[in-house]
Nucleic acid binder design. Structure first.
Length: 386
DNA sequence: TAGCCGTGGCA
DNA sequence: TTGCCAAGGCT
């Protein structure tokens, strides 16, 4: 443990710093924790990112709290997703559904369409379930405690703590991937993840500023996103550089320690793009669970691990069609890589159950995951070359 | 507990 | 080009 002695002159926000509630003459682990929180808050007051779901600089000090709905929506979108990817979706969602009641009144299919491209589609389905629960069971307002939030669909340990801290000022320990990285470096924790999670949480709890828990949590996440990055961290600009054991050991990038990754298996299949004489595409809705649940696709074969590379049209949705081979689409999912052979044909037929014809103008509004956008783009491209 | 669940940017 | 991995949750 590195003991950093607290002096009043070091604290830029002494009026708020709970370090000064302790005895300055006898530094203790708590004093160290207070110093870290103090440095983080001072840094955050100068360098906080301005983000659409945050209140403006100084608003919090004037008693203006962020809208719990916007905090919740942003936190769900930000799960395993970068700020840059989320921004446009957040704007689209808040324009279309400005509060939890309007989101609860929406159809799940419309939410999936708006979510298309953002990934992890169970988040969108749980978003709808959570909005329904808030309206039906909580009178249209979010629970104000992390424990209450934890009961809602799609809200786990991290998200419940983050919403409670940011929107309701609860001194909850907010631990995400950024915080894991900052803490494991600060303490040079050699224990690999996820085994180290319990220790990280305990340390975070001891560091969390009881007066400004939301700002402290966001300061840690901003630090992880902008300075304490996975590769090439900007340690010279870090407010915790004097306290960081990983830096003093000379290799911050070594943390956090993670177990070796497994190689992704390869799956193959065929996708069939049918058009009618009006140029509409035959689409269908995927099943209710598993990969891309509830999303839209063109008919495909099963995606299997067979390695022979053969993908024929024997499993095509229409027999005796004049299938044209357009090429192959590749896509990498979380736990496997997919190669789809794409075939196209023109055919007049009635759409089956769970199927419909979608004209080119409305294709952009469908709930198409990225792999299906690739399939359609390839088919359209080879059609135009004909 | 460990596998499942997307996508895109970056080095 | 390939691998890494980002404001995780669910089962």
């Amino acid at each position: 443990m590195i003991i950093v002695r607290t002096r009043k002159s070091e604290c830029l926000i002494s009026g708020r710093c709970f370090a000064h509630k302790t005895d300055m003459a006898s530094p203790s682990p708590d004093t160290t924790a207070s110093t870290v929180a103090c440095k983080m808050l001072a840094w955050y007051d100068r360098h906080a990112r301005e983000l659409p779901w945050r209140v403006g600089p100084g608003d919090l000090a004037r008693g203006i709290r962020p809208d719990p709905y916007r905090v919740w929506l942003s936190e769900i979108m930000l799960q395993q997703t970068t700020v840059a990817a989320v921004k446009d979706y957040f704007a689209k969602f808040t324009a279309k559904w400005p509060d939890v009641a309007s989101l609860a009144a929406a159809h799940e299919d419309d939410i999936l369409k708006a979510w298309a491209g953002l990934g992890y589609y169970s988040r969108a389905r749980n978003l709808k379930k959570c909005a329904d629960a808030v309206v039906a069971d909580h009178g249209g307002t979010f629970p104000t405690s992390s424990a209450g939030l934890l009961d809602l669909p799609g809200i786990g340990d991290y998200t419940s703590a983050a919403i409670a801290a940011i929107a309701f000022n609860e001194p909850a320990a907010v631990v995400d991937g950024n915080v894991e990285r900052v803490i494991t470096r600060l303490h040079a924790i050699d224990t690999p993840l996820p085994e180290a999670k319990k220790e990280i949480r305990a340390i975070t709890r001891s560091l969390t500023d009881p007066a400004r828990p939301g700002d402290f949590a966001q300061s840690m996440m901003d630090l992880g996103a902008t300075l304490c990055t996975p590769k090439r961290p900007a340690c010279m600009h870090c407010p915790l550089r004097e306290d960081c054991r990983a830096l003093s050991a000379g290799d911050p990038e070594r943390f956090p320690v993670r177990p070796a990754k497994k190689t992704k298996p390869l799956r193959r299949g065929a996708a069939f793009v049918l058009t009618n004489r009006d140029g509409a595409f035959l689409l269908e809705k995927r099943g209710d669970s598993g990969l891309l649940a509830g999303m839209t696709q063109v008919p495909t074969t099963a995606w299997t691990a067979r390695q022979d590379g053969t993908t024929d049209t024997s499993e095509a949705p229409v027999a005796n069609a004049d299938w044209m081979h357009c090429g192959t689409v590749g896509h990498v999912f979380t736990h496997f890589e997919l190669r789809l052979s794409v075939y196209s044909a023109e055919r007049e037929m009635r759409a089956g159950e769970n199927q419909w014809w979608s004209d080119p103008a409305s294709l952009g509004g469908e709930a198409l995951p990225t792999v299906m956008k690739k399939v359609l783009a390839l088919a359209i491209e080879s059609e135009s070359e004909d």
